[in-house]
Design a protein around this nucleic acid. Sequence first.
DNA 1: TAAATAATGATTATCATTCTCACTTTATCG
DNA 2: CGATAAAGTGAGAATGATAATCATTATTTA
Lengths: 158, 158
Amino acid sequence: MLHPPKSKTLNKFLQFLSGATLMTRLSHLKVRLTHSQRQIYTLLSQTDGAMTAQAIYQRFQTQQKSMGLATVYRALRTLQIKGLVQARAQPNGEWVYTLTTEDRHYLTCLNCGASIPVEECPVHAFEEKLAQTSQFQVFYHTLEFFGLCAPCTQRLGS
Amino acid sequence: MLHPPKSKTLNKFLQFLSGATLMTRLSHLKVRLTHSQRQIYTLLSQTDGAMTAQAIYQRFQTQQKSMGLATVYRALRTLQIKGLVQARAQPNGEWVYTLTTEDRHYLTCLNCGASIPVEECPVHAFEEKLAQTSQFQVFYHTLEFFGLCAPCTQRLGS
DNA sequence: TAAATAATGATTATCATTCTCACTTTATCG
DNA sequence: CGATAAAGTGAGAATGATAATCATTATTTA
């Protein structure tokens, strides 16, 4: 049984969700978010681009009510398991976090680490099919092309 | 760790390459590999599945001629820039390395970290088109679906 | 309201990865 | 060839992001 979301934050966030994955994500919404989780979710929704856990921590340090570093990591993990937030590893090893509604297709340079978002994506239909045919509950996917960007190709000679 | 065994020799490896990306990778094969790089390449070609840098280091420790840890990391980075080796971040933060000929499509559970290879892939054509229309030199791509595996979905109640 | 449960924060611990620097090997070129 | 430059290597230390600990506080549940 599904409890309908009641808070305004959740309603706003629902506007982001669409399509077949909506139901799977909704099933997780009945679990209330803690204060910290909601704060982080709100921050990510207001931020252009991705943030590292450390950056999120720093941001809350500058506010009246700070948030412990451990809480940031715990909340991010919980938000991921709820399907609301995704993590992506950068070549330098740091993880960046975004809402699962953000861009998630990149050209990533193996040399300088630059990540260029790709607009097009041929796999949304595949994702839905996969979610139906496998027991796996798909929240989001990442399609990443690795190689060398033009400047680095030139710089390295080849 | 979770990859099915694949073919290993350089000749066989070349069979996997096709179309536009073949030339770009061949251009890198001309560059000589150092002794360490070749050793790591050979090890990966003889290993089923992916290895962490630490595991590679350990493996060479047990042999007569050991290899420094820094060298392992340096060689892996160089092999990546040459387009011969790919790295993939696991949810626990560790990186695993495989030849760029291995499977690279997964269902990854956000809770337990299990990665299940997916055979099908709808983006190979897209990759070639992308390599031609962008200045980016594509070595390989990763298509990863994140969510919860069946056991974890049940375990977490939902 | 009281007891049970979950979340939090300050701190410490962990550990994969990178850096440093002295040394060795390989490449370049007169 | 030899000399010199350039690149690669290894041992160990430093880095830094993330996880673990544990006492305390907030939130649910009955």
